[in-house]
Structures are given as structure tokens and as C-alpha cells.
């Protein structure tokens, strides 16, 4: 749910990293944290972990400034993937604006992806939301592992679901920015359609994309 703060002239958008246990949601946020320009991000909040497993959530705040003087602020959350923490997942998902679904590319873990996807749909419904309301992209993480899903298999998922897919290897810092950029682009289009946010903030899709790329410029440098 887009939040407007008049006093601070700030618009806050909530992005949630969802997905099965150990798929690399936290790792994605860590990668983004190291890439982001420190002028545009806050500290990465990691709330209580047990053996490095998320119990509550992680949160990375990022913002960009529009020429109108407004601030566009993104809060990137992860959910805990373990089945046991469903209540927390449901709560973290409340008021979400867009979701990066981090699935794993490991062939023997595909059931976990499906289970988590079903759980995502359930928790959306529990929050009175629907896939149409929430721009979603799918990341296939851990591409570095042997026998991981092949590009054509990932493309098949994209064709079947109609959702953008992104291969990634979060632990090596590849694909994380592309996933987020793809998601934010989709979200921006969605908000332009529904709330004309682009016009109101004087921020076209193209300018928006440029701003995002600037913030995560470290990636761009890395890719040459």
C-alpha cells in the first residue's frame, strides 16, 4: 500500500522478498546493500536470526529523490522461509506493493518452490490481495550450483506464468540488481497506470530506471 507522508514529502513503497526456506532472500538483500550508494540507503536491519535463518524479517531502506523535491522511499523486506513462521510471513506481507519471489534453481528443490508459491498466494488472500494487485517477479537463485535449472526452463516458467523471471546467484552478487530493477520497473508501470504517480512526481519510467541504476551503480561498474 503506497504510503504518502505529506510532512516529509515522502512516498514509501513496500517490497517483499518472498520464497522457500534457504532460497537466498537474505543474501539478496545483503548483495543489494553492498551495491547501493550509501547516499541512498540506510543500514540493513537483520532482526534476530537463529543459525542464520531469518526468524522475523530483514529490512533494507533505499530512497531516491524526484525533481519535484519528493522522496521516493523503498523498504525491502524479507520473510522467514521456514514453514513454522507463517504468521510472520503473513504479517510482513501486509500492505505490500511488490514482491520478488526468490526461488531456487536446484532441481531437487522444485517442490519447495511450488509450496512456497502456494503459501504466497494464500497469504496474499489472507491480506485481501491478489496477484493482480501486486506486481511480482520470480528470481531463480543459486544458478551457480551444478545441475540447476537451464535458461530455457526458466523461460518456460516465464511464458507459463506471464511473470518476468531472472536468473541469479545472489552469493556472487549477480542478478540481484536485475531482479530488483525488473520488479521496480513493473511496479512503477503499475503505479503509473493506477495512480498516475509518474506524472505526479514528474518521474517518467525512463528517468525512474535511470535513478535506480544510479543508486546501484556499483553493479553497473562491475558489469563494465
Amino acid at each position: 500500500m503506497v504510503q504518502f507522508n505529506l510532512k516529509k514529502r515522502e512516498i514509501t513503497l513496500k517490497i517483499v522478498y518472498y520464497g522457500p526456506p534457504l532460497s537466498g532472500k537474505t543474501t539478496n538483500l545483503q548483495a543489494l546493500f553492498t551495491q547501493a550508494d550509501q547516499m541512498n540507503r540506510g543500514r540493513l536491519v537483520t532482526l534476530e536470526t537463529k543459525d542464520d535463518r531469518t526468524i522475523y524479517f530483514d529490512m533494507l531502506p533505499v530512497f531516491l529523490s524526484a525533481s519535484t523535491g519528493h522522496r521516493l522511499s523503498f523498504k525491502l523486506y524479507t520473510v522467514p522461509g521456514q514453514p513454522l513462521h507463517n504468521t510472520t510471513r503473513r504479517v510482513v506481507l501486509r500492505g505490500v506493493d511488490a514482491v520478488a519471489f526468490i526461488s531456487t534453481s536446484q532441481r531437487d528443490q522444485l517442490d519447495a518452490n511450488s509450496e512456497s508459491w502456494a503459501n504466497y498466494r494464500e497469504n496474499l488472500a489472507a491480506n485481501h490481495l491478489d496477484l493482480h494487485d501486486v506486481p511480482t517477479v520470480i528470481q531463480f537463485n543459486k544458478q551457480d550450483l551444478p545441475d540447476s535449472l537451464k535458461p530455457e526452463e526458466i523461460r518456460a516458467v516465464q511464458e507459463y506464468s506471464g511473470l518476468p523471471t531472472f536468473p541469479a546467484s545472489a552469493i556472487h552478487n549477480t542478478g540481484c540488481f536485475e531482479t530488483l530493477a525488473g520488479l521496480l520497473k513493473r511496479l512503477w508501470g503499475h503505479l503509473a497506470d493506477r495512480q498516475a504517480l509518474d506524472v505526479r512526481l514528474g518521474l517518467s519510467l525512463e528517468e525512474f530506471e535511470q535513478a535506480i541504476t544510479r543508486i546501484f551503480g556499483n553493479t553497473m561498474k562491475r558489469h563494465g
Binding site: R43, V45, L47, Y56
Partner: peptide, 16 residues
């Protein structure tokens, strides 16, 4: 930051 994180964690503990 650290102090507030502790507060949030306690808050999540209590609430969950």
C-alpha cells in the same frame, strides 16, 4: 540502531 533493533525484536517476540 542496535538499541532499536533490540526493541523491535522484543516487540516481535511479544507479539508473536
Amino acid at each position: 540502531f542496535v538499541g532499536f533493533k533490540g526493541l523491535m525484536t522484543t516487540n516481535m517476540h511479544v507479539q508473536s
